[in-house]
């Protein structure tokens, strides 16, 4: 073992075939510095094949768009009782007498809660459709075996977790403007709204990555994820819905600390359990 001699030669078949002793990979060459390189290799590989095939992002974006449009068509989120109110009694009589408009615009608590729930339901179903793809793709294409053979489980998990977090953040950044456009939510506190939306997306990706690995090994890859995700992800949805509703109405109701702690907890548990799901 002569680590210093490892250069281009390592990859040449000639040296591999040479009868005399050949420098071999030193056993110590897989330190923690190499772990990050492995994680980043997995992440970049997934990103590259995603950009080339657009299998996950395209699907979930279409899914989210369809859901947003469908809800915009079918669920009344504007109008009397939701965005417009009749002036209160005394003011109403004055307005009638003076010939002024009797309606005024103001968000109601119901509308805040409704819009905020719509957002998270769309995000949940889009995420459950798209996030397992990183693992389902490997199993369906049959590439999982070679990945198992060559890559440490922890590097596979972390790389794919990063990829899913990035993918869900991209999705979030694409659907928030659409949401604002279609529903006119009249958010009072945008930083708080975006804070919940971004941290919530990260938390969903954190808990859903391991479940995606689990689902990819079952016979029901297509729809099991929506069912499995519900219980473990509901706390995120409830915290998110409450937080964004508060941000829309301008009330104080900051659930970011709760979201972050649940995110950290679920990601740690996922990371611990992952190799039991992944390794044959």
């Amino acid at each position: 073992m002569i680590p210093a001699k490892r250069g281009t030669e390592t990859f040449s078949l000639n040296s591999a075939l040479r009868p005399d002793g050949v420098p071999a990979a030193g056993p110590g060459s897989r330190g923690s510095d190499s772990w990050w390189a492995e994680v980043s290799a997995v992440f970049r590989k997934d990103l590259r094949s995603e950009l080339r095939t657009r299998s996950a992002v395209g699907t979930i974006l279409m899914f989210a768009l369809t859901a947003l449009v469908l809800i915009a068509f079918t669920v009344p989120t504007t109008g009397l009782g939701l965005t417009t109110k009749i002036l209160p009694d005394g003011a109403l009589q004055d307005a009638v007498r003076l010939g002024k408009p009797v309606l005024f615009t103001e968000n109601t608590e119901t509308r805040d809660a409704l819009l905020s729930s719509l957002y998270w339901v769309v995000l949940y179903f889009s995420a459950m459709t798209g996030l397992p793809r990183v693992f389902v793709k490997e199993e369906e294409m049959g590439t999982a075996a070679l990945l198992r053979l060559t890559t440490r489980p922890s590097a596979v998990f972390t790389g794919k977790l990063l990829f899913n977090v990035v993918m869900l953040l991209v999705l979030t950044l694409l659907i928030v403007p659409l949401f604002a456009l279609f529903y006119d939510p009249q958010v009072r506190d945008w930083p708080l709204f975006l804070g919940h939306v971004i941290v919530g997306a990260g938390a969903i990706a954190g808990a859903a990555t391991m479940l995606g690995a689990l689902v990819s090994r079952t016979n029901n890859r297509g729809y099991l994820m929506v069912v499995l995700g519900f219980g473990p992800l509901l706390p995120i949805l409830i915290l998110g819905i409450n937080g964004t509703a508060a941000a829309i109405s301008g009330d104080n109701g900051n659930n970011l600390a709760g979201l972050v702690s649940y995110w950290v907890m679920m990601t740690l548990v996922s990371g611990l359990l992952f190799d039991r799901v992944w390794v044959e």
Binding site: L214, R217, P232, M265, M266, V269, L273, R276, V277
Partner: peptide
């Protein structure tokens, strides 16, 4: 057995 054990732990944590 392995997958359902994992899910059982994941669920209990929630």
């Amino acid at each position: 057995a392995r997958l359902s054990a994992v899910y059982s732990i994941f669920g209990a944590v929630a």
